[in-house]
């Protein structure tokens, strides 16, 4: 194979730059596969996160409407923690998945804070509204990563 340089101007078109770029890419090609900086998209994880987000929304809307106390609703928090632990278990099986694991830990910590808030009083009014928005932010951050991973699977999927 013969590679020749037909370019004449521009920083990227300089022979040295092109040589380095091509060498770098040959290095990756030599590895025989696409590079992986972030763990792959996992549909089961995506579904489980979406399901937990739905359950949480339902719970918070109900709490806001009824003003129900923490006592009698503890099961939601234990269930959510268990579901999150299962999602984390699956997520940590993949290499380079630190971002997603950190998001899951942050969500878990915010569930604990939500439970503490609920112990202080009902999740209604300004308290309920603010807490709900903040938990939603945790879920949206997590789902944003899932969306990017799903999009990425079309470009960086391993060749079979």
């Amino acid at each position: 194979m013969a590679i020749y340089n037909t370019s004449s101007t521009g920083a990227l078109a300089k022979p040295g730059s092109i040589g380095r770029l091509v060498l770098l890419l040959f290095f990756f090609l030599g590895a025989g596969c696409a590079i992986t900086l972030v763990g792959p998209y996992d549909e089961v994880t995506d579904q489980a996160i979406t399901d937990l987000a739905n359950r949480t929304e339902l719970f918070l809307v109900r709490m806001q409407a009824t003003g129900a106390p923490y006592q009698g609703n503890e099961s939601f928090y234990t269930d959510a923690k268990a579901r999150l632990a299962t999602i984390r278990l699956r997520a940590q099986l993949y290499a380079n998945n630190q971002g997603e694991l950190k998001e899951l830990d942050l969500l878990s910590a915010n569930f604990e804070k939500l439970a503490a808030l609920h112990r202080l009083g009902p999740l209604t009014g300004a308290v309920g509204k603010t807490a709900r928005q903040l938990i939603e932010t945790n879920f949206e951050s997590l789902l944003q990563i899932e969306l990017a991973k799903k999009r990425s699977s079309g470009v960086s999927a391993p060749k079979t």
Binding site: V38, L106, N110, I135, T137, S141, Q144, A148, R151
Partner: peptide, 16 residues
């Protein structure tokens, strides 16, 4: 905590 979650998402999407 939620602010950290947003920044983590932006960082991870950047890596992707």
């Amino acid at each position: 905590n939620a602010s950290q979650a947003v920044l983590t998402a932006v960082e991870t999407v950047g890596m992707i």
